[in-house]
Design a protein around this nucleic acid. Structure first.
Length: 873
RNA sequence: GUGGGCGUGGCGGAAUGGUAGACGCAACGGACUUAAAAUCCGUUGGGAGAAAUCCCGUGUGGGUUCGAGUCCCACCGCCCGCACCA
């Protein structure tokens, strides 16, 4: 539908028409000009970033793409935004670093190998070549000399070296642990990669398995990662909150119960639990242990009931639906916990399905009076429910229908709790903590939800983990002189599992320590490691060390980072951790890599379906009199919801088609118009055509302006021009692209009117130049071409950002609204800066005011200088 | 459940507590044209009126204020994150 629509008259020169002496100009031909200027910028290395201590730097970075094959509209939006910032900052005098690279390791390459028999490396580099050409056709102001691909040994060599440094620093651990196993991708997933109990990529239900894994000790930095969020004031509040919740700090106590058997005999073992509500200890009516708790496991052999229960819990899995539906269930263990403060009182132990082994101690005490979960459990098993928190006003507490939950701590106090009675929750916690610490049965403890980062993956297309397993020496890091450990290329993908471990020779090596027979680690890194430090590598992409300190000192941190909200936790948290780990191993001199973060919205599109429910691509949907039909088959189509562009719903528009038909400038302009950048944008044909018409309009206006000879007063146009300069500058500084564009439309409207009205040629020329310069960050090719038409020396990329003349930005006259009792009744245009005393006689003399006041006395005369007058009567 | 965000014309959206609807899209009318496209000019929140002008209007109901789309409270609706975290 899109292609071909303009084909017939594309580039046609319209003849001069006899009825007018206005020059009818050629249409702007992006097919000629866009490649021309792209070549010009490349030849002149216009965007090459060179360190220059004398100039202020500005590092703008968009999240680098995965080379999946072709770019999509989400990339176009993301990279357009970054490019506008880069070009704007560059024109404003900053030394700009705007690099691009490829997040090139990952499973799609292996899947392609399995499905189509191509080699992951060949597939990846072919995709990079395609996508690089596509990005270049967008006219991005990128320093391509800094391009990096994470699958290149010259990149991952340094990743391996840093991993060894992390090992030396105690930031790496190898331990057997229960892992999330993706049965489709045959690999381990990090907690962060498990979404609703399913693999984030395969969508398969995740299983639990015990495996020896490499871990990065991100939890060493839990406190710092959390508290430093407060410093990231230019990050979206939402992202900071998500990270805060993810790290999940809670202040509580760990303490242990003495245990006894049915008969009251003291047992050797104790039960350690974690709680944040130790003030409710007198309301405890049971203890619940995770099905995976060591104590439960040890009882399994002797108790069929416990064994069955453990199987049930394992079968339930971790998916959201199951958890929601699952009843609170448990099995008594036949063991009892002695209450630490009530001699002779004991509560039963249960294995329970709602207690997580991975958090706290994997065991809790249940206080059903004040916790929904505990209440459900106690009700099911007939356990006592004793309220121990009640309203301060002494009102009765009814816990027969549900727990008593009051958020407002000032309204409640402790009841039924011996020495705690009457205390506030806070004081009761502190009292219990002191007593338990005295008794040496527990201590105050801060707990985090954040787990260490499991980074082992049983995949081929990733960075090899640089260690060797030796029977005599154990785990031996690969000596740095032997790095990089490169991937073998002769691998096969005909059986499930890791091709590296199937490879006949690769893993067999001699131990670097003892020289004996040893085996390479065949796991590779989680690809999130690759993307956790690339921003630093861009500062010195060819350095012999991971990061050249002097380059990093100059360029880091990233002044503006832009990407999707989907990376709010994983990528951004890992990067923050990596910066800290790199700091502690001497690779980087800072801990927060991204000074400012911006998360852009998605690109959406209408969906189309046939009556049979088959998705149809928008390019094949044709509208006729409000009805949609299939372009080829003619069958009627149903218009569905507006949704994120996705291959599965076929509501995608190919950037190549758009750039070929309308040009990159049009696509860029559309992406920034109308919709605020953080919101989802709907791609529409009419919107693109509107952007395309504006390209043509600028082109025409500039042609006309170039030959303008008018002499009528140009003050008004000059004011509009300088106001536009001031406003667009402010909007671009604050990433309000849609507002900047509205201002540019206003300027073009004023210029059009000025040309019609024969406005002074100098003012017209000034307006036209401003129009070109202000729109240049968004439409760089058109701007260069217009610059030539205006006959100005040099190029737009070589021209500094225009400066607004303050005298022309501020009006000497203002129109003030006149309100009576808060309702707008009239307006008055007066000199700027008049005071209340100067305004009052003038306003009171107005006919409209006299009539509306109708002789009523005035109570107040309010003046907001240069804005509004409100008469209260 | 819990945390957060948002509700403004036919649509996308503007609006430091100070003239609601900038700017764009769409629609309609006109000019130009043999015709169409393109372009240009105009109209476009609702209602009353010939007009001047007036009334109503930012999800609903209250409140603070000289003045509320904006601040506060309650409710309704939509969207997003987290999800048995002790």
């Amino acid at each position: 539908m899109l292609a071909g629509q303009f084909k017939d008259w594309y580039g046609i020169t319209f003849p001069l028409q006899a009825w007018t002496n206005i020059l009818v100009t050629e249409r702007y031909n992006h097919r000629e000009t866009e490649p021309k200027w792209q070549a010009f910028w490349e030849q002149n290395q216009s965007f090459r970033a060179v360190r220059d201590e004398a100039r202020p730097k500005y590092y703008v970075l968009e999240m680098f793409p995965y080379p999946s094959g072709r770019i999509h509209m989400g990339h176009v939006r993301n990279y357009t935004m970054g490019d506008v910032i880069a070009r704007f900052r560059r024109a404003s005098g900053y030394n700009v670093l705007h690099p691009m690279g490829w997040d090139a390791f990952g499973m799609p390459a292996e899947n392609a190998a399995i499905e189509r028999g191509v080699h992951p490396k060949g597939w990846t580099y072919a995709n990079i070549a395609t996508m690089k050409a596509q990005l270049k056709s967008m006219g991005l102001a990128i320093d391509w000399s800094r391009e990096i691909a994470t699958c290149d040994p010259s990149y991952y060599k340094h990743e391996q070296a840093m991993f060894i440094d992390f090992m030396d620093k105690g930031l790496v651990e190898r331990r057997t642990s229960q892992v999330n196993w993706d049965p489709v991708d045959h690999t381990v997933l990090a907690n962060e990669q498990v979404i609703d109990g399913k693999g984030w990529r395969s969508g398969a239900v995740v299983e639990k398995r015990e495996l020896a894994q490499w871990f990065l000790k991100i939890t060493n930095y839990s406190d710092d990662l959390l508290s430093s969020l407060d410093r990231l004031t230019t990050w979206p509040e939402k992202v900071r909150l998500m990270q805060k919740n993810w790290i999940g700090r809670s202040e509580g106590m760990r303490f242990s119960f003495d245990l006894e058997d049915e008969a009251g005999q003291l047992l050797k073992d104790k039960l350690s639990v974690y709680t944040t509500r130790h003030d409710t200890i007198f309301g405890a009516s049971f203890c619940a242990l995770s099905a995976d708790h060591p104590m439960v496991k040890s009882l399994e052999a002797d108790s069929p009931a416990i064994a069955t229960f453990r199987k049930e819990v394992a079968a339930l899995g971790t998916s959201e639906e199951n958890i929601e539906r699952a009843e609170k269930k448990g099995v008594p263990l036949g063991i009892y916990a002695r209450h630490p403060f009530r001699a002779g009182v004991r509560v039963p132990l249960y294995a329970a399905n709602f207690v997580l082994m991975g958090y706290g101690e994997g065991a809790i005490f249940g206080c059903p009076g004040h916790d929904q979960r505990d209440w459900d459990f106690a009700t099911k098993y007939g356990l006592p429910i004793l309220p121990v928190v009640g309203p301060r006003d002494g009102a009765a507490v009814d816990v027969s229908q549900g727990p008593y939950l009051e958020d407002d701590a000032s309204k409640v106090h402790i009841i039924n709790s011996d020495f705690l009675n009457g205390l506030s929750v806070e004081d009761a916690k502190s009292e219990i903590a002191n007593r338990m610490e005295e008794m040496k049965i527990g201590e105050r403890r801060v707990n985090f939800r954040l787990r260490d980062w499991g980074v082992s993956r049983q995949r081929y297309w990733g960075c090899p983990i640089p260690v060797i397993h030796c029977e005599t020496c154990g785990v031996v890091p690969v000596p740095k002189k032997d790095l990089p450990v490169t991937l073998p290329e002769d691998v096969t993908f005909d059986k499930p599992g890791n091709p590296l471990s199937h490879h006949p020779t690769w893993k067999h090596v001699n131990c670097p320590k003892c020289g004996g027979k040893a085996q390479r680690e065949t796991d590779t890194f989680d690809t999130f490691i690759d993307s956790s430090w690339y921003f630093a590598r861009f500062c010195s992409p060819a350095a012999p060390m991971p990061v050249d300190p002097s380059d990093a000192r100059y360029w880091m941190g990233v002044d503006q980072y832009i990407g999707g909200i989907e990376h709010a936790i994983l990528h951004l948290l890992y990067s923050r951790f990596f910066a800290r780990a790199m700091r502690d191993t001497g690779h980087l001199g800072m801990d927060e890599p991204f000074n400012a973060l911006f998360t852009q919205g998605m690109v959406t599109h209408e969906t189309f379906k046939t009556l049979e429910g088959e998705w149809v691509v928008p390019a094949e949907a044709v509208e006729m009199d409000g009805k949609w039909t299939h372009a080829k088959t003619g069958e009627p189509l149903v218009v569905g919801d507006i949704e994120k562009m996705s291959k599965s719903k076929k509501n995608v528009v190919d950037p190549d088609d758009i750039i070929a038909t309308y040009g990159a400038d049009t696509a860029r302009w559309f992406m920034l118009s109308d919709t605020p950048p953080e919101r989802d944008i709907e791609w529409t044909t009419s919107g693109v055509e509107g952007a395309w018409r504006f390209v043509q309009r600028i082109w025409r206006l500039v042609q006309e302006a170039a030959s303008a000879t008018g002499s009528a007063d140009g003050t008004s146009l000059r004011r509009t021009t300088h106001k536009a300069i001031a406003a667009v500058t402010d909007d671009l500084e604050n990433l309000r692209f849609n507002r900047a564009i509205a201002r540019i439309y206003e300027l073009s409207n004023a210029l059009g009117a000025g040309l019609q009205g024969g406005t002074d040629a100098a003012a017209v020329s000034e307006a036209a130049k401003a129009l070109v310069l202000l729109s240049a960050p968004m439409m760089p090719h058109l701007a260069e071409e217009c610059w030539k038409v205006l006959g100005v020396e040099g190029t737009v990329v070589g021209t500094p950002w225009p400066k607004a003349d303050p005298k022309l930005v501020i009006d000497d006259q203002v129109t003030m609204a006149i309100q009576i009792n808060g309702k707008r009744r009239d307006e008055i245009t007066v000199a700027k800066g008049l005071t209340k005393d100067q305004l009052e006689p003038v306003v009171m003399a107005l006919e409209s005011v006299k009539r509306l006041l109708d002789g009523k006395p005035i109570k107040k005369f309010i003046v907001v200088p240069d804005r509004i007058i409100n008469i209260v009567c």
